[in-house]
Nucleic acid binder design. Sequence first.
RNA 1: CGCGGGGUAGAGCAGUGGCAGCUCGUCGGGCUCAUAACCCGGAGGUCACAGGUUCGAAUCCUGUCCCCGCUACCA
Length: 588
Amino acid sequence: MSDKILVSVAWPYANADIHVGNIVGSHLPADIFARYHRLRGDEVLMVSGTDSHGTPVTVRADAEGTTPLLVYERFHKRFLEVFVKLGITYDLFTTTHTENHFKVSQDMFLALLKNGYLYQEKRQLMYSESEKRFLPDRYVEGECYICHFPDARGDQCDNCGNLLEAELLINPRSKIDGTRPVLRETEHYFLDLGKFAPAIEEYLSHGKEFWRPNVLAFTRNIVAELHGRPITRDLDWGIPVPIEGTEGKCLYVWFEAVIGYLSASIEWARNAGTPEAWKKWWYDPAARTYYFIGKDNIPFHTVIWPAQLLGAGKLYGGPNDEALNLPYDVPANEFMNMEGRRISGSRNWGVWGLKYLETYDPDPLRYYLTAQMPETRDSDWNWNDYLRRNNDELVATWGNLVNRILSFTAKNYDSVVPQPGLMDEADTLLLAQIDRAFEPIGTQIGACKFKAALSDVMALAREVNKYVDDKAPWFSIKTDRARTATTLYVALRAIDSLKVLFAPFLPFTGQRLHEMLGYSGDLFGQQIINEYQEATRSHLGLTYDSSTITVKWQPSQLPSGQQFRSVAPLFKKLDDKIVEQERAKLGS
RNA sequence: CGCGGGGUAGAGCAGUGGCAGCUCGUCGGGCUCAUAACCCGGAGGUCACAGGUUCGAAUCCUGUCCCCGCUACCA
């Protein structure tokens, strides 16, 4: 029986390229999870998109002398490219800059307003008369009112380190044109989070034992002191507040971006020609919704988004009048550092997806990132470690197992899966051990324990290497062809099973191995980039066609007599020199 | 005392009351099918530190030190 699984992934900001921290934090674990559930035959919907609004995008546009629209479009296109090359199989990766998302966000705003969860409040904020707009804190400089450093930023003083209130700076000036901003009163909408505290506590109080302890502890702590947060800002790049007389005000990004999970699901259904199909993930109480994010995003997904969903109530209405589903699990990852220091775009301290793929293959990256995934604590990318895991684990253990058995079979059995004879205890035990592994390894992936699952699969590959060594077919071939045929058949079937167990982690080499073994058909579906036209604008979206999948999460049924196609190594051994070469690029 | 996470073999990690484990590296041996790949064996740890609870603590409690994150536009 198939489960309904919604895989929601953090929306990357359209102001910088995707780096390994973004990939390991959310996109990759989500993809492993989605691929596994698809192999199981579950109904999976995996969505995300580009967060195209917000100050970072505007800041970048100002710096480049261009428009936020062009900045967002440029990075959005590069996101799609990196996800195709890395095999991050989104059913829909869209953007927040669609008419659909505007509409859904505004609908949710209005629903919250109608249900009494929004209130208005006036604030005094910095306003630039020369530019006729309110200035974000970072756009204001002035004398620090604590240490009197003359060039403090609006949000923090670089001299004394204190966090500042921009409106209190002495002699404030605009960072853009140097003019003196004035305080001007502005009215904003606030989400009344305090009203949700009892409901959120109730939500967190049962059935959350499987949540990662840090996520749960962090969340429970926040719920204790919930207060209203502004959800609108004085900006012109974003989603307009859908109320008369609020010109020049937009929905604040943190409020609007999370709504993307819902709007992307709706868009996916509409694009597929089944406009109601999204409802089975959002209204069926048996559906499970997962949110793959980085730890910086925890409160938005475990408190604020549930509050929005609770407050919006039934919104568009489920088939049986159900309310919207709350997050089932939020498996947030910690951060991955780069050679001991925090990844930083401005200092060029990191490894970027597209850049990496110019030189290296996707599966070794997926392997290394999974093995180093920051599931319980911060981890570190280290090029020496990358080299070691590629050469000593991927190449030496798994790649070599495949290569030694396939080439031996090619050489001695004419590239045909041999007919096994009577199996002895060792043969039976090995196959039983691997057949039995599907369930516990699947359970681990389903529980978002990706490191442990991958390490268990690799341990099985070592078991098969050991079996081959014990059987020594290179000896038996000289005296007992029947015995050797059995050994090779057992090893090949083990390899064929390992192909499936590794598949969620290593889809590209999995597909190659699948073909080498002589199968036709695909392990996974195809990724397709489409252009979608709405009434007034168009956007690119990445989608996934799973109709060609022929493989299931189950032990190999490899038929003897099947003819191999070409046999070639799955992985490339890397030269030691890359460590110094790659390290030299950091920080330059 | 702002909040949360973490400190276990050279490196990276698992291990929530019962003889301290895994991968890699290292040392020694074996094999030769395989990308000098594979297999076997050994060495290596006062489980951050100090107290406490317990027949028994890496694991529970108290205190201390150190690292990381959140509160900002660096995921």
